[in-house]
Design a protein around this nucleic acid. Structure first.
Lengths: 169, 169
DNA sequence: GCCATATCGTAAGTATACTGTCAATCGAGG
DNA sequence: CCTCGATTGACAGTATACTTACGATATGGC
């Protein structure tokens, strides 16, 4: 006799990895925004600032690879950071297509000052778990993200992978 | 002497839970969309369909609590599902503010047919891990999402919590 | 029956996140 | 030198995801 299809229940949704990842991401953003409210920076904007700080004179395309965010999305992020005067865009003298990104003095100050709030936010996300479980979850997640890198629409290409493409900025 | 502040590096970003949650969510969505391309359904739209299937005649506000999605966001999701003729909205005879949600015949068929693709997508997300690690990650994540429920902007209020509010649909 | 309060759907505004496409520009081969 | 293919930034379009607000409606206290 034919096996009957499994019942469609919410429990199946609640237990699905994709659903849990989504919920956790929403929680993480909520916590980040709450802790960093005073700085008016979103998680993505913060990551972009760090990357520009680490790679002064990087261009938008490379920045998108370094933080694994979509290039089009990043365009708007850069626009907002620029309108808040946290970064500057200067045309490259070597390649007229490229606009090089640098932190402004104000951007560097914000980045320096926001660090404690960011650390507090990151800690709060894992707070409910026992310390050993936090380590275990982080290790598994790091592993999984790395192994799934190519499944992402915008795979991470860390600094190393970009060096051979480097143009002097 | 004063301790100097830790260097600001991308490695700190890459290791931050918030960054990993975001990356994993992006990967999960990419895999879901790829596996379910034939059905033209996003993860959120799928979750909404399941919830409406499980709770025929639910209203938008309650639906948002059952799947823990923002009410305003859900408004647009419902609009798209309706324009694809997967669900119907009917005014309640008891409360003129409320519009009750039901699957159409077509919506029920899509939900039935998409299940294998959804299962494949969910499996693919964890595929790179060893089976024991998959279980461990899911368990930790389930625990963390549950314990952080109230930190979310839209905490999950599962079916049970809604029953005492129930109005006959 | 009236009024303060709450709820429902909806909308405007902001911010990711992705798909395409396009013009300008660059680099390489012939 | 010139054309071809690739790259860069920009834009339009779709879909979450959240905030605040507002009108219509319900409800509880009186």
């Amino acid at each position: 006799m034919p096996s009957k299809p499994p019942a469609i229940t919410m429990d199946a949704v609640y237990a699905a990895p994709g659903y849990l990842f989504r919920r956790m991401q929403q929680i993480a953003v909520a916590i980040f925004v709450e802790e960093c409210r005073a700085f008016d920076l979103t998680p993505v904007q913060y990551a972009a600032l760090v990357a520009i700080h680490t790679h002064p004179g990087i261009d938008a395309t490379r920045l998108s690879a370094v933080i694994a965010f979509d290039r089009s999305t990043l365009g708007n992020v850069i626009l907002r950071l620029e309108s808040k005067a946290l970064i500057e865009r200067k045309p490259s003298s070597e390649d007229k297509r490229v606009k090089l990104l640098h932190l402004t003095r104000s951007g560097a100050a914000v980045l320096r000052d926001i660090m404690p709030s960011v650390d507090r936010a990151q800690a709060r996300m894992l707070q409910p778990l026992k310390p050993a479980d936090r380590k275990a979850l982080l290790a598994l997640l790091t592993q999984l993200v790395d192994l799934n890198n190519e499944a992402s629409r915008v795979p991470l290409r860390a600094e190393d992978a970009l060096e051979h493409l480097g143009r002097s900025g």
